[in-house]
Computed example of a mutant assay.
Amino acid sequence: MHLQKLSVGSKSIETLADWQETVVDRRKAAGLSAHHEHVTRMFPKQKDALEAGGSIFWVIKGMILCRNPIVRLEEVVRRDGVKACSILMESTLIPVMPTPRRAFQGWRYLKPEDAPHDMGEAIGDDDELPTKLMRKLVELGAW
């Protein structure tokens, strides 16, 4: 099982990667693991399935473009005293076949059979297509 989540504020895979690098650097400076962390209010009921090979698939400007493999989910208490879920992920973004998604709030489950396939190498390669071009190719049916 996987999750899909809007990457609010991200303009591209690169801006999401930059944000995630900042989060990982903060965690390492605090003596924590070098994983990306996303804290969410709701704790997924399918914890075991997510920890057994799940990923978060990121929706950027209406398209699923990449994913982070999930390492584990932990219950945490936010600064305001409210319980929440910390989703720890591998810090490497993996590009996937661009897939259109409408906006939604929070996160949604994504069945493995409905998940976009990986495109290949992890983000960081110089030959990656710009997000805008990938989106246009998908709209034209050429991707």
Rank of each mutant, 00 (worst) to 15 (best):
K136T: 15
R102G: 08
R79K: 15
H35T: 02
S86W: 01
D114W: 01
E90S: 08
T92A: 07
A34M: 04
I60W: 00
Q105N: 15
E37G: 08
H36N: 05
V96G: 04
C66T: 12
R72W: 11
N68I: 05
P116G: 12
D25S: 12
P130L: 14
P95A: 02
A30D: 11
A84L: 06
E139L: 09
G106T: 15
H36Q: 02
V138Y: 03
W19G: 04
L137D: 14
L140N: 04
L88S: 01
K61W: 00
F57K: 01
M1W: 03
I56E: 04
P69M: 02
Y109M: 05
I94Y: 07
L133K: 08
R108M: 12
Y109S: 10
P44G: 09
R41E: 10
T22N: 08
K61H: 01
E113K: 11
A29W: 13
L133N: 12
V39G: 09
E121A: 12
T40W: 04
L50G: 05
Q46H: 14
V59G: 00
D48C: 00
A17N: 13
V77K: 14
T15P: 07
G54F: 04
W107Q: 03
R79T: 14
A142K: 03
K136H: 12
E51C: 09
G106F: 14
C66V: 09
I64K: 06
M89E: 08
L50P: 06
V71E: 05
H2F: 03
K5W: 14
R41Q: 10
K111A: 13
L93P: 01
F43G: 04
R27G: 07
K83S: 12
A122H: 06
P98I: 08
M134E: 14
L6Q: 15
V82M: 09
I123K: 02
L110E: 00
L110A: 01
E113R: 11
L50T: 05
I64V: 10
A52Q: 11
V71A: 09
V76G: 01
A17E: 14
E14H: 06
M42Y: 00
A34N: 10
P44R: 06
D80G: 13
E14C: 02
D18T: 09
E14G: 03
P98A: 11
W143R: 00
E75C: 02
F104A: 11
W143S: 01
A103P: 08
V76L: 03
V23L: 10
V138P: 00
S12R: 01
L6V: 15
M119L: 15
T99A: 08
D114A: 09
F104I: 11
V59Y: 00
R41C: 02
D48S: 13
E90G: 08
T22S: 15
E74T: 07
V24A: 02
G106P: 11
K136L: 15
L129N: 04
V8L: 11
M119E: 13
R79V: 14
W58G: 01
I94M: 10
S86R: 06
H117V: 06
E121R: 05
K61A: 00
V82P: 04
K83Q: 11
D125W: 13
M134D: 12
T131G: 10
V59A: 05
P69W: 06
L65D: 05
G9T: 12
P112T: 05
